[in-house]
Design a protein around this nucleic acid. Structure first.
Length: 421
RNA sequence: GUGGGUGUAGCUCAGUUGGUUAGAGCGCCGGAUUGUGGAUCCGGAGGUCGCGGGUUCGAAACCCGUCACUCACCCCA
């Protein structure tokens, strides 16, 4: 019979790796709560229309990357490709805008996109993201960017760069696009085939092309940031000034374009040179119109998302080299020792003292080998000799020091030695 | 969707111009040590050589196809 294997582009996170994932997730939760963001848990599937309407029907995500399937009654459902749409939907559905604003949420969980897997890109991947609702003040932009920067810095990720841009209002972009197009059409022969196609589909993306010839050809292209409305310009200046004030370093990147339709004004991305081609660790921006687009009140919002696989790829080994550790190994052997050991093991665990035993082992030697391998700090030796004396031998597995202790009340005694646990 | 690279033991990999029974290190199990772990020594288990077809007296090796993994394009976190 053929072995059933996992689906292309999905990964098992094995016990050896879960400690590093907990480290990342714990840091994300800690920093979020510290900044006043509260956790929200939303479904991993939604009506397809939600994503089509929010992300943009013409984007790659919606056009060809969604896991979409019919429910039994025929309605089209989709595994979430990102977290903002569902968070906004929940915000509207529960009429959260009737509660005092601002409201700040964060989420952690799996997302799904049907792409060809490569380094740092999977079909099921994990994102941590935040959404700040109700504040159009640029300090809200500064806050989410600062949260992202503090988190990634805390995790000691190497060589991070924060890139900043402003996409202006939708009106600004509408006014700018023809200006850009007239420039591009002059240079069209120098552009790559992809960019000539992009001129029709998404002209802003031409500025973001990696092909050197395209970069050279667009070197002197008119920049969106020099065609911003006064309000958008002022907002952007305040965001940049705020970042400087709190000491978050950034680099202006006028070519930075976000792929999702709902972004406006502030747009940012944090990249690292340690990631291969998919070099964005986290990215986000402002999306003031999205809540209204999805049928809610007019509520400004700003947020970001972080790719946790990419964080994990960059996480220094030193900060995650610990494995799972346990306190006690109960080496119970012999007829009476085995019987008493079963009860002792349970008593230790009820005290909250992590304890292991390999029930296959019948000799002390085999027990100690298991105790060593399983990273326990102490072994509790309980054979028939000890059983007859009503005692155990507590062995420190690092120092090899042993002491004999009474079996009665042992778990309480050991607990009192480690009150912090 | 398009292109490149790689598929041999649980893991990392050798395997000569095609030649007998496919190897090593690590890991695993056991013994040396019948109540004391990690070190050492000895032994053992573990393989459809990704899969299918072809060439050949003979294929892990050569050819064709296919699948998987991987990197990159596209796009994105």
């Amino acid at each position: 019979m053929d072995m059933i294997k996992s689906i292309k582009g999905v990964k098992d996170i094995l016990p050896e790796e879960t400690p590093r994932w907990r480290l990342i997730e714990d840091a994300a939760r800690r920093w979020s709560l510290c900044f006043g963001y509260q956790e929200i848990r939303i479904p991993i599937f939604e009506l397809t229309a939600l994503f089509a309407r929010s992300i943009g029907a013409a984007t790659d995500i919606v056009e060809k990357e969604m896991y979409t399937f019919p429910d039994r009654d025929g309605t089209s459902l989709t595994l979430r490709p990102e977290g903002t749409a569902g968070t906004v939907r929940a915000f509207i559905e529960h009429n959260r805008a009737a509660n005092p604003l601002p409201q700040k949420y964060f989420y952690i969980g799996p997302m799904f996109r049907h792409e060809r897997p490569q380094a740092g890109r999977l079909r099921q991947f994990h994102q941590f993201g935040v959404e700040s609702f109700g504040t159009s003040d640029p300090r809200a932009d500064v806050e989410v960017i600062t949260l992202l920067w503090r988190l990634l810095s805390d995790l000691a990720l190497p060589d991070l760069t924060l890139e900043m841009n402003s996409l202006g209002s939708s009106g600004d972009r509408a006014a700018y696009t023809p200006i850009l197009l007239s420039f591009l059409s002059q240079r069209e022969p120098q552009l790559c085939a992809n960019c000539r196609r992009r001129m029709n589909t998404n002209p802003l993306r031409v500025l973001d092309c990696k092909v050197p010839e395209c970069r050279a050809a667009t070197e002197e292209a008119p920049q969106l940031t020099s065609h911003l409305s006064p309000e958008a310009r002022l907002h952007f200046d305040h965001v940049l000034a705020g970042l400087t004030a709190v000491g978050v370093p950034y680099r202006l990147n006028p070519r930075l374009v976000r792929g999702l339709d709902y972004y406006c004004l502030t747009s940012f991305e944090i990249t690292s040179t340690h990631l291969g081609a998919q070099n964005a660790v986290g990215a986000g921006g402002r999306y003031d119109g999205l809540v209204e687009t999805l049928g809610g009140p007019s509520v400004p919002a700003v947020g970001f998302a972080v790719g946790l696989e990419r964080v994990s790829l960059m996480l220094p080994e030193t900060s995650s080299s610990f494995g799972n550790e346990y306190l006690y190994y109960v080496a119970a052997f012999g007829e009476n020792g085995t019987r008493l050991g079963l009860v002792l093991l349970d008593e230790l665990r009820r005290m909250g003292l992590s304890s292991l035993c390999d029930y296959r082992a019948t000799t002390l030697k085999a027990h100690l080998r298991q105790a060593d391998r399983s990273r326990c700090h102490y072994a509790i030796l309980l054979g028939d000799d000890e059983a007859a004396r009503g005692s155990i031998i507590l062995r420190n597995l690092e120092s090899k020091a042993q002491e004999e202790l009474p079996l009665a009340g042992l778990s309480s005694l050991l607990k009192s030695r480690r009150p912090s646990l």
